[in-house]
Amino acid sequence: MKLTWALLVVCATAVCWHSAATAAQSNIKLELPAIETSQYHRPYVAVWVENAQQQPVKLIALWVEKPDWLKDLRRFWRKIGRSNTALVDAVSGATQKPGSYTLQWDAKDDSGAALSAGRYTLFVEAAREQGGRSLVKHEFNLPAQGAVIDIAAEGELGAVKATIR
C-alpha cells in the first residue's frame, strides 16, 4: 500500500512538472509568403536569439537545402554559421514551402541552460536563391511572462508573431 501511494505521488509530481515545463514554452509563429515569380526557390530561414552583447545564445531553427548557400543568410553566417558547424548540423532541417509555421522555444540556450534575466533579441532571417533577403529582429526581456512580439511582413518573410514565456 505504501509503495502504491509513493508511486502515485511520483506520477502526480511528474505530470505537474511536465505541465509546467510545457506551459513555459515560447511560441514563434512565422509565415513564408507565396511569391509569384518564374523561378521560385524555397527560402533559407534562420531563427535565433542573441543576448544584450549581441552574442548568439540559442539557434531555434535553421531551414536549408545546401550548405553552400548559408552565406546568403548574412547575419546568421557571421554570428553562428561559419564558426559553429556542429550546431548548424544539429539544428538544420529542410527548407519549407510557403505557409505558416510554429516553432517552440523553452528559454534555454544552446547548451540547455536556462537563460538569465535580461535583454535579448529575437532574429528571423530569410534568403532565397534568385530572390531577396530579409532580416527582422525584436528585443524582449526575460523573464517575459507572456510578452507578445509582432513583426510585420517584409520581403521574403511574412508576419512573425511570438509569445515569449
Rank of each mutant, 00 (worst) to 15 (best):
G112E: 06
E50K: 09
S134M: 05
Y44N: 10
L70T: 03
S83M: 10
V148C: 07
A126L: 01
D110S: 15
V148D: 06
E156A: 03
D150S: 15
P143K: 04
W105K: 04
L122H: 01
Q53W: 02
A24D: 14
Y40D: 05
K137S: 06
P56W: 09
A6E: 11
I28Y: 02
K97H: 14
G146D: 04
S83Q: 10
V88K: 00
A107M: 09
R74Y: 14
S19H: 12
L87W: 00
Q96D: 09
R165S: 14
H41T: 07
V91C: 03
W77Q: 09
A14T: 10
S26T: 08
H41F: 13
W5P: 00
V47S: 03
I80F: 00
L59V: 06
A153K: 05
D106H: 07
I35L: 07
A126W: 02
L142P: 03
L8N: 09
A94R: 13
L30N: 02
Q55V: 13
R42G: 01
T4V: 15
W77V: 07
W69D: 11
E125T: 00
Q25K: 13
W69R: 12
G81V: 01
A86P: 00
N27Y: 03
T121G: 03
V57E: 09
E50D: 15
G99W: 06
E139N: 14
P98G: 06
H18D: 06
L32N: 01
W77M: 10
Q130T: 14
N27K: 14
I35A: 00
V49H: 01
P33H: 03
A52E: 10
